[in-house]
Amino acid sequence: MNHDFRQRPLSPAQARVLATLMEKARTVPDSYPLTLNSLHSGCNQKSSRDPVMNLSEADISAAIDTLRETSLVIESSGSRVTRYEHNFQRAVGVPEQSAVLLGLLMLRGPQTAGELRINADRWYKFLDIASVEAFLEELAERSDEKGGPLVVLLPKAPGAREARWAHLLCGAVEVPESCSPSPAVPGVDTALAERVAQLEARVEQLEKTLRELGA
């Protein structure tokens, strides 16, 4: 049965523990599953984390206990030291590519499709940005029968060229007022506004093509 994050969203600590296990399973397979000490270091590392956190071992143990209840994390047997591994794909019911994107969003916060493709390099090599976007759109349109959407496309921030995606595993995302769409202003030439929007879209498409050619 798929975990329903609308009924039981993750806490920030649980999301960090889960995503760290997902990361280390792919980047350091020889050291995986992780001991509590290794998990503690991974959760609190300064690189590839947004926000940087300072979780205690007690915080991590409490998060693990809750994650085990929902089968998102399982305890590894056959070792003198207790080790932990994630069970994300099976518990949530998503393919590897979707799990990679969700793990990155939990670890690094909201990102554009282009940033996700770059940051995923050690986890999974996506063919192009279009494939990243396809999996994100599939997660955003996930049916209620499967537990509902797991990501959302945020309104484009002022001055940003591309909109960022955020995960919904910790519940609904609060959008800062500065990122909210501006109300229509009376008297503005709508034809000009539409032309500017079209030009911006063409520039984004050209930049996307150049990135793909240079990849």
Rank of each mutant, 00 (worst) to 15 (best):
V185M: 09
T70R: 12
L116W: 03
E162Q: 10
R122K: 15
M53N: 08
L153Y: 03
E75S: 13
A15Q: 00
S180N: 03
L169A: 02
S143L: 06
P29S: 06
N44E: 07
R108I: 08
T209D: 13
I60K: 05
Q111D: 11
P9L: 05
S41C: 15
Q14T: 12
E69G: 05
C179D: 14
R8H: 15
V132L: 01
N2R: 15
R68F: 14
M1L: 07
Q97M: 08
Q14W: 08
L150C: 01
D144C: 07
E145F: 06
S79N: 06
G147Y: 07
E194D: 13
L39P: 01
L18I: 01
I74M: 15
R117H: 02
P155R: 04
R142V: 00
G159Q: 08
G93L: 00
A15S: 10
S131Q: 14
F88D: 00
D59W: 09
T112G: 08
A99D: 03
S11N: 05
L192K: 14
V152N: 05
K146D: 10
V17A: 03
L105S: 01
A160S: 12
E133S: 12
A184E: 12
V196D: 04
R195L: 14
Q14C: 12
V81M: 09
P149A: 11
R68I: 13
E133K: 10
A215R: 04
A166S: 11
Q111V: 08
V81W: 06
T20E: 04
K208D: 10
N87V: 00
V100P: 04
L206C: 13
R142A: 07
S11Y: 03
C170I: 11
L107C: 04
P186D: 03
L104Y: 00
R80N: 15
G114W: 09
E212K: 09
L213R: 12
R90A: 13
W123C: 10
A58E: 13
R16E: 02
R68V: 14
E115S: 02
V203S: 07
E137R: 11
M1F: 10
V73N: 05
S47W: 15
E162L: 11
S56T: 13
A58C: 09
P95G: 03
A15M: 09
R195K: 11
C179M: 10
K46S: 15
R122N: 13
A58V: 11
M106F: 00
V92E: 00
S178E: 15
A25N: 09
P110Q: 00
R164M: 11
S48M: 15
A140V: 03
G109F: 04
L18C: 09
L210C: 00
N37H: 14
A58D: 09
C43N: 01
L153M: 12
S98Q: 10
